[in-house]
């Protein structure tokens, strides 16, 4: 339990770093780190397959997308960048305090969560569940990937020309 708590603290710290750091590339790195830590947490909780997917897709693919967007949109107009850097701290310095405060406050709250619940019989292997009970979601995945392909074709169109 202690190790898991430590991991979760690290997870939140990584996410905090991703949102606080100035350079976008470092923020992307922070996000990848968050993803990686999350997949470790998932692994520790027993969600092995989901952890693998999270690690490869989120820490990998999404970082690639973010890095390419960052590089395609550089250089920002210099004035904008300087001004942004100057004002950033005003908007972000309360965040660590808020998080700390919320964390402490929530750890003192004791909500009676001893709800007794009934479980439907047996929970099989994740692959069985995915392929034999959630086909509709798989179809949804294919569909949304199709939509994503159209998104790339339409939104990134000018690149081709």
């Amino acid at each position: 339990m202690i190790w898991l708590t430590l991991l979760l603290v690290l997870l939140v710290l990584a996410a905090l770093w991703a949102s606080m750091t100035t350079a976008l590339l470092r923020a992307t790195l922070g996000l990848a780190l968050t993803s990686a830590l999350l997949s470790v947490v998932m692994f520790a909780l027993g969600a092995t397959l989901a952890a693998v997917v999270e690690l490869s897709v989120c820490a990998g693919l999404i970082s690639v997308v973010l890095v390419s967007v960052t590089s395609l949109t550089q250089p920002r107009s210099l004035k904008e960048a300087v001004e942004a850097r100057k004002n950033r701290l005003h908007r972000f310095w309360p965040l660590p305090l808020v998080l700390l405060g919320a964390g402490v406050a929530l750890s003192f709250v004791r909500v009676p969560v001893d709800i007794i619940l009934r479980l439907p019989a047996g929970d099989g292997d994740v692959r069985t569940v995915l392929w034999s009970m959630r086909q509709l979601d798989l179809f949804g995945q294919i569909l949304i990937l199709l939509a994503g392909v159209f998104g790339v074709l339409v939104l990134f169109r000018k690149e081709a020309k």
Partner: peptide
């Protein structure tokens, strides 16, 4: 105690997440 179900859901969520990120990036 429904970890298999939750994993199935999370995998779908991750796929959706990727597509949303790509589209928003566009």
């Amino acid at each position: 105690g429904r970890m298999a179900l939750a994993q199935a859901l999370v995998i779908t969520v991750i796929v959706i997440e990727v597509v949303v990120v790509v589209v928003v990036a566009g």
